[in-house]
Design a protein around this nucleic acid. Structure first.
Lengths: 243, 243
DNA sequence: AAAAACAAACGTAATTATGACGTTTAAAAT
DNA sequence: ATTTTAAACGTCATAATTACGTTTGTTTTT
């Protein structure tokens, strides 16, 4: 007779970054490479994650995992879904080659996504073999992590339409066209530049700086910044039933 | 030395219903009443919830819990947040009077909310002592369930602005004013009836029926229905960056 | 030094949506 | 028949959106 099923609690982090050069929304993944004496068992990529420590909150756990991977703290973070079906494979590193059934183990993972600036992450000498992959060109992915990534992406798509989280993915100083490119990358749509430009510039929380791009081989664009303070004041009493 | 912390996995369900008569958004809560030999230990209300069975998915677990409480299946359901901080009190009925520290236990709950039609729920002979409470007049609530309810409510507020989930709370045949009242209840705002009316009637997925209210003591209002089919077709290629 | 290339930035007109109101209508109650 | 009252319709000014055309300011090429 099998023992009582053992529960295992972990967090998994979908780290989104945007590359303004290639204009692609990227996900940061770590390599999972294991071999036994005779054969390569797995050779794919997975999300960064870890089990939750005993006296740690879920949020702190996700923050810790991000910090270990990137060194960054204080990034935009959202807990978006828990995955805990009984047939899930386990996640933490010390168990990744074991299937649940053998150990009568169930791993529930609380999935987070982070939005950060690619430029803030230094992948040199990364102990996890971490790499950025465009959301539209993901590699072979282990466990159920592809599903988790795609659900995070869906959440991001919806959320970026109603909240100004897009600026978390951009440098502090950005051009109008960079914002447009990012929307297009995330949503997979084409936007009319002249209309988009007018709309964005008219927002009071989009502030023109006394600066232009440097080192570009065309007419350098005006730089802008996003003001969260002004945004918050504006939306203290705003409801648009758009349905 | 304490043993390894034991994990406990549960679901909790925030059941929202709308009462078109009192025009209040309600939450369905069950009574928690326990007494020892000498005193009443707790006498408050909690969410309906239960631990997740070994071979059950999280979604199935929430569905089961709702069915046990209301007899209903196939209701709108959303998993909106996991609560699993180490200091959480436990939830399932067989453990509700025990504080975590004493047993070195940690209960992670996956919180869902349901949207359903109040009229579909029969609370007569309810074995849980279940009762509807207006979201703005909640009783004394046990565990951290008030927090869970309020987070569900926030999610609902945001979501009802961008998705037609409001109709899950209304009878299949409804009047324009009922929709307006419901928006006002959820969002806590006043909406101009003439503008709201025009806006709603112009939506192609709001379909006027060949029917009017019966048994009202004023001019009976036109009844409408919501067509999910038409809605889906319309929004297959629609993006409004409103930010 | 002038011309070409090209993204950045500006402009315009028609259409649609919104906000803030006033007015009429239909049924029930008196 | 008259009153009452919510339902339903109407209007107008303003703002937002859509769908385009045009100009401007750098860098690069000739």
């Amino acid at each position: 007779m099998k023992p009582e099923k053992i529960l295992n609690l972990s967090v998994d982090c979908v780290v989104f970054g945007y590359d303004t050069n290639t204009k692609s929304l990227n996900v940061l993944l770590i390599k999972r490479f294991l071999e036994s004496e005779k054969e390569i068992l797995v050779d794919d990529y997975v999300l960064t994650g870890y089990h939750v420590y005993n006296n740690e909150t879920l949020d702190d756990s996700a923050t810790r995992v991000l910090k270990e991977l990137t060194g960054l703290t204080n990034q935009y973070k959202k807990q978006f879904k828990a995955f805990g079906n009984p047939d899930r494979l386990t996640n933490p590193k010390d168990l990744i080659w074991i299937k649940n059934e053998e150990f009568n183990l169930r791993t529930v993972t609380i999935a987070y996504y982070f939005l950060l600036k690619t430029e803030d992450v230094d992948l040199k000498d990364n102990k996890f073999d971490a790499k950025w992959f465009p959301i539209n060109a993901l590699p072979e992915i282990g466990f159920d992590h592809e599903k988790i990534i795609l659900e995070a992406y869906e959440d991001l798509k919806v959320k970026c339409l109603s909240e100004p989280i897009i600026f978390k993915l951009l440098p502090d100083k950005f051009t109008i066209n960079e914002v447009q490119d990012l929307y297009q990358s995330i949503l997979g749509i084409e936007i009319d530049n002249r209309n988009f430009r007018r709309k964005l510039i008219n927002k009071k929380y989009i502030i023109a700086l006394d600066e232009k791009q440097v080192g570009v081989s065309k007419k350098p664009a005006q730089l802008y910044m996003f003001s969260m303070d002004i945004y918050k004041k504006m939306f203290s009493k705003n409801y648009l039933i758009s349905m």
